[in-house]
Computed example of a mutant assay.
Amino acid sequence: MGHIRLGYARACTARQSLDAQLDSLAEAGVTRVFSEKVSTRATRRPELDKVVHLARELRASGARVTLVVHEHKRLGRAIDLAALAEDLKASDVGLEFLTGELRGSHDPSGVVFTVPAALSGMEREYIRDRTLEGQESARRRGKTIGGAGVADDHMVSMAVHLREQEMSLRDIAARLVITTGTKKGRHPSPVTVMRMLREHDEHANASPAPAAPTPGAGRP
């Protein structure tokens, strides 16, 4: 049946565009693409499940199959990529990345997912995406994140990352530097870090507030 290349594209929030990924896949000659906008934190990605299932079926029918993705980060966290690699390897399906640290075509038997730099980069991207998702939720609800206005996206991302390394609030505060406002160049206090992390967690886990009813809605 020849060589079949199936594409997959993903954005982590509804506001992010898939255009760059879709254009990249089209330029690479991939005509069958599965795409979705699903949070990095989601445990299920329906379109990814579909394309992997189809790849298995096509491979079982005798075709040579490759799953093509713009960049490895689109597949989620490092643990997600490792699990997918094992799944594809068991099904004898190849994997190709069009850009990034793992750019190139990888044979199903190839071991390419132990590259430390690539995997650590995926974790940083995961932290960044999770932070952006929480902040987008906060904006929809009319709130801001930030411990007295000293936090920015990078500071929140770094604080979350350091917390996951089981560092204390005092040690996290010592690693962070305020980049804006009257306190620029100083370290935030442990109390500010605690509040910043608490607000991040609340916003990341909160559901969007229901839309207010339109005045006069439902009136004859």
Score class of each variant (00 low, 15 high):
residue 167 M to L: 15
residue 93 V to R: 12
residue 130 R to E: 10
residue 57 E to K: 13
residue 182 T to W: 04
residue 14 A to H: 03
residue 135 Q to D: 08
residue 107 D to H: 13
residue 187 H to R: 08
residue 87 D to C: 05
residue 187 H to Y: 05
residue 159 A to F: 06
residue 42 A to L: 12
residue 41 R to G: 10
residue 43 T to C: 01
residue 38 V to C: 10
residue 95 L to G: 01
residue 210 P to Y: 03
residue 200 H to I: 04
residue 190 P to Q: 06
residue 199 E to T: 15
residue 98 L to S: 05
residue 69 V to K: 00
residue 163 R to D: 12
residue 216 G to K: 09
residue 207 S to A: 15
residue 199 E to M: 14
residue 26 A to D: 09
residue 89 K to Y: 00
residue 59 R to I: 02
residue 153 D to R: 11
residue 50 K to W: 01
residue 103 R to K: 15
residue 100 G to Y: 09
residue 167 M to F: 03
residue 48 L to I: 10
residue 111 V to Q: 10
residue 167 M to A: 02
residue 184 K to W: 00
residue 137 S to G: 06
residue 9 A to E: 06
residue 180 T to D: 10
residue 206 A to H: 11
residue 219 R to Q: 05
residue 178 I to R: 02
residue 177 V to W: 03
residue 111 V to N: 11
residue 182 T to K: 15
residue 144 T to K: 14
residue 170 R to D: 14
residue 1 M to Y: 04
residue 184 K to E: 09
residue 118 A to L: 05
residue 151 A to M: 14
residue 27 E to A: 14
residue 79 I to Q: 12
residue 44 R to C: 05
residue 84 L to G: 05
residue 208 P to E: 10
residue 36 E to I: 08
residue 87 D to L: 06
residue 115 V to A: 10
residue 153 D to A: 10
residue 163 R to T: 06
residue 21 Q to P: 07
residue 102 L to V: 14
residue 177 V to H: 07
residue 119 L to C: 08
residue 37 K to D: 07
residue 140 R to H: 12
residue 204 A to S: 12
residue 60 A to S: 14
residue 183 K to A: 15
residue 162 L to F: 14
residue 194 M to W: 08
residue 36 E to G: 08
residue 190 P to N: 07
residue 121 G to P: 09
residue 220 P to V: 14
residue 180 T to E: 13
residue 55 A to Q: 00
residue 134 G to R: 07
residue 75 L to N: 01
residue 65 V to W: 09
residue 117 A to L: 09
residue 80 D to W: 00
residue 78 A to Y: 03
residue 125 E to P: 03
residue 63 A to Y: 04
residue 173 A to N: 10
